[in-house]
């Protein structure tokens, strides 16, 4: 039991370190690299998704409890979110409806 808790504390430190690294890499990419705007956007979106996964797995313990149902619920929420955000941008900006 105490070994399990010890591993868990280590788990949290790893999660925290990962989240700091991901944040600073994203900032560095935007401020200090000559990449094109499109590449920067793609890169920071991917980094944000990894950040979210770090929070879900390391801090929110999504894989405990009724894990299948929890993962299905939150994944469905994320699916709807992607449809709303990407769909709105696609409709309103990329189709050039509003000039």
């Amino acid at each position: 039991m105490s070994e399990q808790q010890h591993a868990s504390a280590k788990h949290h430190v790893i999660g925290f370190a990962l989240s700091l690294v991901l944040t600073f890499v994203a900032l560095f990419l935007v401020i200090n690299t000559p990449l094109s705007a499109g590449l920067k956007l793609t890169a920071i979106i991917i980094l944000a998704i990894f950040q979210m996964l770090v929070q879900l797995v390391y801090f929110m313990h999504v894989t405990e409890g009724s894990k299948v149902y929890q993962i299905i619920s939150i994944s469905y929420g994320l699916f709807v979110a992607v449809c709303i955000v990407a769909g709105s941008i696609w409709l309103m900006l990329l189709n050039g409806m509003e000039g």
Binding site: V62, S66, Y69, S73, I74, V80, A81, L93
Partner: peptide
């Protein structure tokens, strides 16, 4: 209740997604 809270969080994800969509557009 813990599972129910995950369902609530899924709804919160959708709430914030509408605000993100509005902002980004």
């Amino acid at each position: 209740k813990i599972f129910g809270f995950w369902v609530f969080l899924a709804a919160e994800v959708v709430l914030f997604s509408t605000l993100f969509a509005t902002y980004l557009v």
